[in-house]
Design a protein around this nucleic acid. Structure first.
Length: 829
RNA sequence: GCUCGAGUGGUGGAAUUGGUAGACACGUUGGACUUAAAAUCCAAUGAGCAGUAAUGUUCGUGCGGGUUCAAGUCCCGCCUCGAGUACCA
């Protein structure tokens, strides 16, 4: 029966019961609230960890679980390191899903939204996210969106918000404008109808004014943001250096400007192309014999829309307009075409075509049998090979440019054009102004009143917020105009300027507006007189660590950076970049693809939490691999995580020394293992290798187990030191288990208030190291040597080794490479 | 098409400045405990060859070259996969 005594530690009462542990600590944490960050007397240095806030489309899913597990590791780590960490949460609560759900179930979008938020909030509490619940915000709350309106009006005053007619994406089926991101391969994301263009008056924010600063300030982010994201932003902004060149058009008074990055190839321009859907094309075609043909073509282009342009291959189409442009350098008359391969809204909507050195122009030239003039020497003839050359090389057929290289020729041509007044250098961008109006109900009303006499009038600040009208009596279904237009009582107002009858703007703002500055609001979430106080924001920001999916690599992050720069210009903040460091976590997949109900590979987070517990799921998320990699849930083992947690937890029951025992008297071997593990874990956590952190803690658990069972025994102070280190380090990933361990080790809650173990450098020094001895690069011997061994001694030792002598087989020694204390390589003749 | 990034055991993944490839896990196999199962614990586990065994030995980080005493790591050329972008002049 003595066995039962030995096994006492493994009795049923001592089983690791994750559900019981969760239930035990959750209410206590509510009470202790260890993650409050708003105490003004708090003297700890500040850190700001921000997770991208969720959209309340339902309960939390596996993707949230990964993202919030990762953000939590960082936040909790900095708390243990002695920082006052702001780790807030809020909800990106405006948007179309709420509106669709409301239409479907005939209820208020707000009801649906807040119900989902409550559910997510409950799940987050259970998931043990270290959020500061005093800082919660909801973007659909008038106390938040009133500041969207305030910012909008500030930008309006500064000329950064403006209204213009332009062609926008239009879904003829849904009868509504679509955002660019809602157009997938030319089709409406929701109904798969072909998206067309429609001209509408829309509000824009002048983000293009900030293009250069958005590019330049990326230097600050180098090394702190994923290189991939910076690259995507650079491509998106798409700055290019080139020149405007003026072409006279026969029979037209004004010359037409084209944009080109290769003014040096001007002598090779053999035709001229205007975008088929541009005003200029219509003007040039009017009254010519090509007019009918052009109109037919234009109709086709408009109807075919995005979809056909994508998969119609590379066959170029166009119409000769029976007009001629004059090449400003050689006076040559070149034919003018309208074609859809030239875009109306990039550059000037017209190009000089240089088929020898531009692939698209060459394709067009070959289709329409247009001449090809080579002006940069190349080995192959583009007309024959079908491949345009864009390489550097000596210029030919180019008058004064002959013999020059590309860079020189570009400069020379720009000088020539400048002297003649037919061109000038210019910079062009791919980035367009940000279209923010949406014909939707569930968003921030645009605070503008349209008056016949006074035009666009800002709603006076004391009348903000312009709240959404009640949905009572409103038809939210797609009508082609915003549902707000039908709320007669709301729309009809007196003009703030003249008092005459006027109409409210009925569009609402893009929800990307909400997310462009919410991270600023967290610093001062309840401010009712300003979006935030500059003092709080400048104290907490910029965000030290921003965590979120790579799906937002361009839009959200670009808009947020833009907004921050505007706030800087307004004198509200003292920094120009909002997010010092960015981490893009991967996605959670199942069987190699994104989870979805229709695919039948959906993993329900609640099921996973029920079967293995919160900690095991968090641990699985973190341990699966580097945070930026995707996780295939079919390849992780949450039950394995649970087993490890049980193993770690059991340590806390085995320790028999008292809390506060002097660890310096403990077993030196184990102590070294502890301090090595802490040092390694710390280094890994700082460099975001959280999976490696877990591995180090696992190793420590393993050696501690061995020490208890077959080493120094459970009473050794080093065992306590080890178990406490495990509890503290584990608390960043598995807070419930760690908290319970901490308590079983005789400490007061919460482990979140403990301090990350301090590494004693003396314990990192090893008594001996394994030195590898190679002969011809192959390992032949391993020697245990002192870490301070000198090269001569080590060489002597290595050469004297039997295995080395044997491996040499009597050959002479050419050289010996000695790298004390870890390696010797003997190179034989 | 263009621009990036990545290829390491059966699987996920480790590996400062080039210096013991495969840490830590999952899975698998065998064993202990149990009436049994679960749980737990212990052991083995890159592949091949030789040997009863200890062990020895060869190969091995997508493929082919190169630099080096030494290459997963650096250089050149390919292949494959993934991501972004879509005629941006």
């Amino acid at each position: 029966m003595s066995e039962q005594v030995v096994n006492a530690g493994h009795d049923l009462g001592e089983q690791y019961d994750f559900a019981a542990i969760q239930n035990r600590w959750l209410p206590i944490w509510d009470e202790l609230a260890p993650f409050r960050s708003g105490d003004p007397s708090d003297v700890r240095p500040k850190k700001y960890v921000c997770d991208m806030f969720p959209y309340p489309s339902g309960d939390l899913h596996m993707g949230h679980a990964e993202a919030y597990a990762i953000g939590d590791v960082i936040a909790r780590y900095w708390v243990l390191k002695g920082f006052n960490v702001m780790h807030p949460i809020g909800w990106d609560a405006f948007g179309l899903p709420a509106e669709n759900a409301a239409i479907k179930n005939n209820l208020d979008p707000g009801e649906w939204t807040y119900a989902n938020i409550e559910q997510q909030k409950t799940s987050m509490r259970n998931y043990a996210c270290s959020f500061d619940w005093d800082r919660v915000l909801y973007t659909c709350d008038p106390t938040y969106y009133r500041w969207n309106q305030w910012f909008f009006l500030e930008m309006f005053k500064r000329g950064l918000a403006y209204r213009k007619f332009s062609a926008v994406n239009w879904c003829p089926n849904c009868q509504t404008v679509l955002a660019n991101e809602q157009v997938v391969a030319g089709l409406c994301e929701r109904c798969d109808a072909a998206v067309t263009k429609k001209k509408l008056a829309q509000w824009y924010l002048r983000i293009t004014d900030y293009a250069d600063r958005l590019l330049a300030d990326m230097d600050q982010l180098e090394g702190q943001w994923p290189e991939k994201v910076l690259l995507m932003q650079r491509n998106w902004i798409g700055r290019s250096q080139g020149a405007h060149v003026h072409f006279a058009i026969e029979g037209r008074d004004e010359p037409v400007m084209v944009y080109t990055t290769r003014p040096d190839t001007l002598y090779g321009a053999t035709f001229f192309v205007v975008a088929a859907d541009s005003d200029l094309a219509a003007e040039l075609a009017a009254g010519t014999e090509a007019e009918a043909e052009f109109n037919t073509y234009l109709d086709k282009v408009k109807a075919s829309s995005e979809m056909d342009r994508l998969d119609s291959g590379k066959v170029k189409t166009g119409v000769f307009l029976h007009r001629y442009a004059v090449n400003p350098v050689n006076g040559e008359k070149i034919p003018v075409y309208a074609a859809d391969y030239v875009l109306a809204d990039y550059g000037t909507g017209a190009i000089m075509a240089v088929p020898a050195h531009d692939q698209r122009d060459l394709d067009f030239a070959r289709t329409f049998n247009l001449p090809v003039t080579v002006v940069v020497e190349s080995e192959t003839d583009p007309l024959e090979s079908g491949i345009a050359t864009a390489d550097d090389g000596p210029h030919i057929n180019s008058g004064p440019l002959d013999g020059m290289g590309k860079a020189e020729a570009i400069e020379a041509m720009i000088t020539v054009l400048g002297e003649r007044g037919t061109g000038e250098p210019t910079t062009n961008y791919r980035l367009r102004d940000w279209l923010i109006s949406r014909q939707r109900y569930w968003g921030t009303p645009i605070p503008i009143i349209h008056c016949d006499k006074c035009g666009e009038v800002a709603v006076p600040e004391d009348q903000l917020p312009v709240e959404l009208p009640s949905t009572e009596g409103l038809d939210l279904s797609p009508q082609g105009v915003s549902p707000l237009a039908t709320a007669a009582d709301w729309v009809n107002v007196a003009c703030p300027t003249c008092g005459g009858p006027a109409l409210r703007d009925t569009d609402t703002m893009d929800t990307f507006v909400d997310s462009s500055w919410y991270f600023l609001r967290y610093a001062d979430p309840n401010n009712s007189t300003a979006p935030f106080s500059s003092q709080s924001v400048n104290e907490w920001l910029p965000v030290d660590q921003y965590v979120g999916g790579v799906t937002h690599a361009i839009l959200h992050l670009l808009y947020a950076r833009f907004w921050t720069k505007v706030a800087y210009d307004m004198g509200l903040v003292t920094f120009v970049e909002p997010f010092t460091r960015l981490l893009n976590q991967g996605m959670v997949l199942k069987d190699g693809s994104a989870m979805s109900k229709s695919r039948g590979n959906l993993v329900r987070l609640t099921d996973e939490l029920d079967s293995n517990g919160v900690d095991a799921i968090r641990l699985s998320m973190v341990f699966a691999g580097p945070p930026e990699d995707d996780i295939d849930w079919a390849e992780v083992s949450p039950s394995g995580s649970r087993k490890f947690l049980a193993r770690a937890w059991r340590l806390s029951g085995d320790v028999t020394s008292e809390p506060g025992v002097d660890s310096s008297t403990g077993n030196p071997e184990l102590r070294k293992a502890v301090h090595k593990a802490v040092a390694d874990a710390e280094q890994s956590i700082e460099s975001m290798r959280f999976n490696v952190v877990v591995a180090r803690v696992m190793e420590l658990v393993n050696v501690t187990r061995k020490a208890i069972d077959s080493g120094c025994g459970p009473a050794d102070p080093a065992v306590r030191e080890a178990a406490e280190a495990v509890a503290i380090m584990l608390s960043v990933v598995a807070p419930y288990t760690a908290e319970d361990m901490w308590s079983r080790l005789g400490h007061e809650p919460s482990v979140a208030r403990a301090t990350w173990p301090v590494v004693d450098p003396a314990l990192l020094v090893q008594d001996s190291v394994t030195c590898v001895v190679q002969v011809a690069g192959k390992v032949k011997e391993r020697l245990e040597v002192s870490p301070n061994i000198d090269a001569a001694e080590l060489e002597k030792l290595a050469l004297g080794s039997e295995a080395v002598v044997a491996a040499l087989e009597g050959r002479g020694i050419r050289t010996v490479i000695v790298r004390p204390p870890k390696l010797v390589n003997v190179v034989p003749d």
